[in-house]
Design a protein around this nucleic acid. Structure first.
Lengths: 167, 167
DNA sequence: CTTGGAATGTCAACAAAGCTGACGTATTAT
DNA sequence: ATAATACGTCAGCTTTGTTGACATTCCAAG
């Protein structure tokens, strides 16, 4: 089957095209599940996935600047600005002019924003917890290792920077 | 640190909110990497991620019907139809009226469509292979286990159905 | 003190890709 | 015959991304 002719031994079987394809499809279907719960919650409000991401990262590093958030999300400032404007207008995010550098705007969640963040991350964590529990601790380690190896260099730096905040 | 007061023992430490949050962020950043290479290739043509997905699944199960594809992708027929129309018009996908049931349209890739599929999946597999190689076979097993546990019931069925085709 | 560049915000216009609702047409099933 | 299914399509809307242009504010360097 899948006659590539060469069998490089069991140790490398996980690198066959078959195995790689399964990984690709697993990633696709799993990501749908990953976003499904927050999406459902947000659908009721006038918000979408972009708002979720903004709220998440502001929660993660309160006082972060717009530029920081931009680099984190990898979108244009115009796109982010539209999202932030809505969140500020609705009283979920607070905008504070920088003390040292007054060009910068530092972003914080209001209590209302915190409440939304908690609602969203609770739902997402629940699913993640269920998956972790089903797969077991060793699987979780492998899961994280592969994901980290899949990131672009720059994204991994961002990810590592977040890790250092508390973890 | 992270004083939740209760320490349930090492066996369950991987279920702390900290660990779950890391998993969530890893998923987010990794998915960006996952789609980055195909996105770059598609950006040059008039295509996007939706075309990639359609081409991928038609390649996976040649002769699949529109309804099958619809369920696989989880979008509306209007949304899929727009994508398929473009692919057929550009000669990448072929449309065949069903023999048994003439209402159905069976979808196949043309040689040109196959070429695009190969280009895209080569790029995506390369990244996956690099990640797999870096993480090792045991990590890959864990990776797949967690992803599968993260899917919605219906998506897991779809995923399993694909697995049975060849794998 | 002036000026260049950086950070931010905003306007306009557009595109990709999703959605709903409605309708038409073959074809099959009851 | 009639109902249900599979598919296509039109119209219109939303979210979220994109470019490009331009103003403001402010830091820092000359």
């Amino acid at each position: 089957m899948e006659g590539s002719g060469r069998d490089t031994g069991n140790a490398l079987l996980f690198l066959t095209d078959e195995q790689l394809r399964k990984g690709i499809e697993a990633m696709f279907f799993a990501y749908r599940g990953f976003t499904a719960d927050p999406d459902r919650i947000l659908a009721d409000m006038a918000y979408g996935r972009a708002h979720h991401r903004a709220v998440h990262f502001i929660h993660r590093s309160p006082g972060t600047t717009v530029n920081n958030l931009l680099a984190m999300l990898g979108v244009t400032k115009q796109s982010l600005n539209r999202v932030l404007r809505a969140l500020v207008a609705d009283g979920l995010v607070r905008n504070e002019v920088g003390k040292r550098d007054k060009r910068e705007r530092h972003l914080y969640l209001t209590p209302e924003g915190d409440a939304l963040e908690r609602q969203l991350s609770d739902a997402q964590r629940d699913r993640m917890r269920t998956a972790y529990r089903a797969a077991g601790p060793e699987a979780v380690t492998g899961f994280r290792q592969v994901l980290e190896a899949m990131m672009d260099e720059e994204m991994r730096n961002r990810y590592d920077a977040l890790k250092d905040l508390k973890g």
